Simulated scan of single mutants.
Amino acid sequence: MTVTLASFRQAFPEFTPEKYPDGTVTYNLGLSSRLLDAVRWGELYDDGILFLTAHNLALTAPAGAVGGIGGGAVGIGVPTGIVSSKSVGPISKSIDTSVGLQDGAGLYGATSYGRRYYQLLTMFGAGGIQL
Rank of each mutant, 00 (worst) to 15 (best):
V3E: 02
V3T: 12
V3F: 01
L5Y: 11
A6Y: 06
F8L: 09
F12T: 00
F12W: 05
F12P: 02
E14Q: 11
F15Y: 03
T16H: 02
T16C: 11
P17F: 11
P21T: 09
D22V: 12
G23N: 09
V25R: 02
V25S: 03
V25I: 12
T26S: 08
L29Q: 05
L29G: 01
L29I: 05
L29T: 02
S32Y: 01
S32F: 01
L35D: 05
D37N: 12
D37W: 03
A38V: 10
V39K: 15
W41D: 07
E43L: 13
Y45C: 14
Y45M: 09
D47Y: 09
G48R: 00
G48M: 00
G48Q: 00
L50W: 03
L52N: 04
N56W: 05
N56M: 09
A58Q: 06
L59Y: 05
T60C: 13
T60N: 12
A61K: 02
A61D: 05
P62C: 06
A63T: 07
A63W: 07
G64H: 11
V66M: 08
V66P: 00
V66I: 05
G68T: 02
I69L: 04
G70V: 14
G70F: 14
G71H: 11
G71Y: 13
G71F: 12
G72K: 06
V74G: 07
I76V: 09
I76T: 08
G77M: 06
V78I: 01
T80F: 14
T80W: 14
G81V: 15
G81S: 08
V83P: 12
K86A: 15
S87Q: 14
S87E: 15
G89A: 15
G89V: 15
P90D: 14
I91N: 15
S92K: 15
K93L: 15
S94E: 15
I95R: 15
D96L: 08
D96E: 08
T97C: 08
T97P: 01
V99C: 07
G100E: 03
L101Y: 13
D103P: 03
D103K: 11
D103S: 13
A105D: 08
G106Y: 04
G106D: 08
L107I: 14
Y108T: 04
G109C: 10
A110M: 06
T111K: 03
S112W: 08
Y113T: 07
G114A: 02
Q119N: 10
Q119W: 09
Q119E: 10
L120V: 04
L120R: 03
L120A: 12
L121P: 00
L121S: 03
F124S: 08
G125W: 04
A126W: 04
